[in-house]
Design a binder for these strands. Structure first.
Length: 641
DNA sequence: AAAAAAG
């Protein structure tokens, strides 16, 4: 039922096979021993360690031979690898050896960034096979994204960059960017790079699909690479036995994200770009063995990607200190608030030992910019740059949206029709509203001999990761999902998104269809609509029109008839026509539900000037009037990494 | 109303 139960009876079997992606090391993969679950004894652990060092020694000797290893075409940056090539500096007897790092880890000493030698196996793990262009899908078609409109506001907005170059980016980071085959910065990245470089705070209305993960990772890691760790870190004396050591980790970066899968995804990206550097990324999230995560952290943790609940847990256990934080990133902030994380987030940011707003750089990302996000921005950010990123054009062009009227009892057979008629190739993602339905439908599909899996919050973390994995690599090209997979998740090659049940929130719908139609590809999105969904009909029509899609006439009439009764809710002030979210410091707010033009609660800021920080103080607590005064942005999410 | 997340 719950992951913790697996640790007991069934733990050994499952634990021996499954190693979460971020825990995998070179020698973990072929682990054939039946032991090795979370509860395995110290004996197993230490013998593991011995094996690891052995295999390490042997692979290390490979470095001398350049073989085919250097033939991978890094010609554009010939100097990059010279520093990191295997040399005599880095040996066990040497003073510079830092035991808390393994050999694939760089280190910082006396103001110099020592880059670790390259490691073919890790490189393959992180970046894929060099010739495998399909798997390595990042970096394609970026040119296409030049059209995405970006609007930046705030004081002294730095000029956007146009290329990945050094400066402003660190040379080592550029090498990793090359390895990951990112060629051209996306619009978010063009802006975020100089903004973070300048040490400014950022509030960005953008989604994963816009390249925002790299958008914050690049400049932030780049700065860390050049600046090094904070000097006054309490020294870790690794010669002491572990029980006498300070077991707290002092990360420089915290990245918070709402779901476990998203957290893992960000972590995977971080690993790529932190490769061989002194920065060691870690990831913590609920539902997984905390002991394993603690051990990871103990080995060094400079950049931590976390879900809020687990992070609070670790702080309480005094295993994480926030006192050295230089960068705080809140990803999918609106989603985190929706999920009720505000208390945890406020606790982490305001009530623990994290440096104050003035003493850290804070980056906030959010698909929408409703009022509670504005308040969060007010409290967490200083003199920030507001970035509004337009849709990645493919919502309108690349994704064919279709709304079908299907009664609940007919849904199954219509679904089967669709699945039978669709040609092989792309993945099919089916969204349902309840966890129960996800299981029921998945079971039904299996009984009909469709290779399906399901992902939802009642499954264990292991099951979730397995499901996602088997979907990604097309072992089960059909996946039934709840809202857990609607946003942010990057699943390549999804050809068809089916909203078996429509969500009640149009944002969710938009996020769902954004799982398909990736860069350069076309996608299909089908939704089953019936009377139960009439609440979303109006918004749905808006979306369809905006995306130049066919609007069924029956849908129009449902809306008309709906308006008769509801007295015309007249939309919720969503910004149509490209840009949605606006810098509320600059623009007058659009009317919310009541609409009586009384939304100028921030008063007197139409001049485009930057508001004084205390502008909010005049506002007191009475902001309950009106609803949702802020335009919401619909942006496609063709995630490409 | 359901889902997600800390256990």
């Amino acid at each position: 039922m719950n992951d913790s139960n697996h640790g007991g009876s069934s733990g050994p079997q499952q634990g021996s096979r499954y190693v979460p992606p971020h825990m995998r090391t070179r020698s973990d993969n072929p682990r054939s021993n039946g032991r090795g679950g979370g509860s395995s004894s110290n004996w197993t652990a230490s013998s593991d360690h011995a094996q690891r060092s052995d295999s390490w020694q042997s692979s290390r000797s490979d470095y001398g031979r350049s073989g085919g290893w250097n033939d991978r075409g890094y010609s554009n940056r010939p100097n990059f690898y010279e520093r990191g090539s295997y040399g005599g500096k880095y040996s066990r007897g040497d003073q510079e050896y830092m035991p808390r790092r393994d050999e694939s880890q760089g280190y910082w000493k006396n103001g110099v960034h020592h880059i670790a030698p390259r490691n073919p196996r890790i490189e393959h793990d992180l970046f894929g096979a060099p010739e495998d262009n399909d798997r390595q899908h990042t970096g394609i078609n970026f040119e296409k994204y030049d059209d995405i409109p970006v609007e930046a506001s705030g004081t002294d907005v730095p000029e956007p960059v146009t290329q990945f170059t050094s400066p402003p980016l660190d040379q080592h980071l550029l090498g990793n960017v090359d390895l990951a085959r990112y060629t051209t910065p996306t619009p978010v990245q063009k802006y975020s790079i100089p903004i973070v470089e300048a040490g400014r705070d950022l509030m960005a209305c953008a989604q994963t699909g816009s390249g925002k993960t790299a958008g914050f990772l690049f400049p932030l890691l780049s700065k860390l690479f050049s600046d090094g760790p904070i000097a006054n870190l309490p020294p870790q004396d690794m010669n002491k036995p572990s029980y006498l050591r300070n077991r707290k980790a002092y990360p420089s970066v915290i990245i918070l994200s709402p779901t476990r899968e998203l957290t893992c995804q960000i972590y995977d990206e971080a690993r790529k770009f932190a490769y061989r550097s002194w920065v060691r990324p870690c990831v913590v999230y609920g539902g997984a063995d905390i002991g394993q995560q603690l051990r990871q952290i103990e080995r060094g943790c400079d950049l931590l990607v976390a879900t809020p609940g687990r992070l609070v847990d670790l702080i309480e256990r005094a295993r994480i200190s926030l006192s050295q934080i230089k960068y705080l990133v809140l990803d999918e902030a609106d989603r985190m608030l929706d999920m009720g994380f505000e208390p945890q987030i406020r606790r982490i940011v305001e009530k623990e030992d994290m440096p104050g707003v003035q003493d850290r750089v804070t980056l906030m990302f959010s698909a929408t910019f409703p009022r509670d996000i504005q308040f969060l921005a007010r409290d967490f950010l200083k003199d920030y740059i507001f970035l509004s990123v337009g849709r990645v054009g493919s919502t309108s062009e690349n994704i064919t949206q279709k709304i079908e009227y299907v009664e609940d009892e007919d849904k199954r057979s219509v679904l089967l029709d669709i699945l039978h008629s669709s040609e092989l190739g792309g993945l099919t993602l089916i969204f349902v509203e309840t966890k129960r339905m996800a299981d029921v439908l998945c079971d039904f599909l299996l009984s009909q001999n469709f290779p399906a899996t399901a992902i939802h919050g009642d499954r264990t973390q292991r099951e979730r990761e397995r499901a996602l994995d088997s979907f990604r690599n097309a072992r089960t090209p059909i996946m039934v999902a709840t809202a857990v997979a609607a946003r942010g998740l990057d699943i390549a090659n999804v050809g068809h998104v089916i909203s078996y049940d429509l969500p009640t929130d149009i944002d969710d719908y938009v996020h769902r269809i954004g799982r398909t139609g990736r860069a350069g590809n076309t996608g299909a999105a089908t939704a089953f609509f019936n009377r139960g969904n009439k609440g979303i009909a109006g918004d749905l029509i808006d979306i369809l029109k905006e995306a130049n899609q066919e609007v069924p006439s029956w849908l129009e009439s449902i809306v008309r008839e709906n308006r008769m009764y509801s007295g015309g809710k007249g939309g919720r002030g969503r910004g149509r026509g490209g840009f949605g979210s606006r810098d509320f410091r600059k623009y007058p707010q659009q009317g919310g539900g009541g609409g009586s033009g009384g939304d100028n609660w921030y008063r007197g800021n139409n001049s485009g000037g930057y508001p004084a920080p205390d502008m909010y103080n005049s506002y007191g607590g009475g902001y309950g009037r009106g609803s949702n005064p802020v335009a919401v942005q619909y942006q496609n999410k063709t995630s490409w990494f």
